[in-house]
């Protein structure tokens, strides 16, 4: 394999507007899209803004949209594109642009603060916690989340509906509620906190109509919809009517039959 020149179109601009700029840049064997962005910085566009950190798919900083698909720049190999294909990189659409590929993701940090924290069980000192592996497996799956916010970006409830943002926590933080709800030692209920009810009433679980867009873009492969959101909806429905769950249950029953 060898080196070749690739065509890139990258969105440049800021909160006041901007547009796509064309670049031709060298690509080497085994590189990922973030390598190419770095080469552009070092050779052609020293002030090209991009957010990144670990470059190994572990920190979730370099989220953007590549040819329209929400992805991590560091985990998208150049070999997935044809050599004559123009690779277009744009910032995440659901969040306000700061500059170039960097967006203002403070929405997510605000939502994180609204989710009630883990409630430690009374009467258990540090070191006395006992939990079975099979009982922590599910919450551990959700804790694999690297907070890249690609699910938040792609979720159609907020992607093109700014007006839903105040009332909808988004898949990442609904999953956080599910994680705490399934934590074997979380004492929320004993403290008078009903996590399922808050998911529905305060964090907009009802807005989710399980299109699984979040699951599709998750770079960690977390089954957000199937393992977190649908079970939450099912638990909520014990107390409340949710048309989507009702429909979902009927469809599944029919398919299963």
């Amino acid at each position: 394999m060898s080196t070749y020149d690739a065509r890139f179109r990258i969105w440049r601009g800021d909160a006041d507007g901007g547009g796509l700029t064309d670049y031709t840049v060298e690509v080497h064997d085994g590189e990922v899209v973030l390598d190419i962005v770095h080469r552009l910085q070092a050779t052609q566009a020293p002030d090209l803004a991009v957010r990144w950190n670990c470059k190994a798919g572990k920190c979730g900083s370099c989220s953007a949209e590549i040819n329209g698909r929400p992805r991590l720049l560091c985990m998208t190999r150049m070999s997935v594109f044809a050599r004559d294909e123009t690779v277009t990189i744009t910032p995440m659409r659901a969040f306000p642009v700061i500059r170039d590929l960097v967006t203002d993701v403070s929405f997510n940090y605000a939502k994180a603060r609204e989710i009630p924290a883990f409630v430690p069980p009374a009467g258990l000192a540090p070191g006395e916690y006992r939990m079975k592996q099979e009982d922590v497996d599910r919450s551990q799956e959700f804790r694999k989340c690297i907070e890249c916010f690609l699910c938040q970006n792609t979720c159609h409830v907020v992607r093109d509906h700014e007006e839903n943002k105040p009332v909808f926590a988004g898949p990442r933080f609904l999953m956080r509620i599910a994680e705490l709800d399934m934590h074997p030692l979380d004492a929320a209920e004993e403290s008078g906190l009903d996590r399922r009810r808050t998911a529905q009433d305060d964090h907009g679980l009802g807005y989710c109509n399980i299109t699984k867009c979040c699951t599709e873009v998750c770079p960690e492969g977390i089954a957000i919809t199937d393992n977190a959101l649908i079970p939450m909806k099912e638990r909520v429905v014990d107390r409340r009517y949710d048309p989507v769950v009702w429909l979902g249950n009927r469809i599944r029953r029919r398919n299963g039959a």
């Binding site: 006992r130 939990m131 079975k132 551990q140």
Partner: peptide, 14 residues
């Protein structure tokens, strides 16, 4: 653990 961390477990739950 009292802050919510979930480590992998031994068979007896530690």
């Amino acid at each position: 653990e009292t802050w919510g961390a979930l480590f992998d477990r031994t068979p007896d739950g530690r």
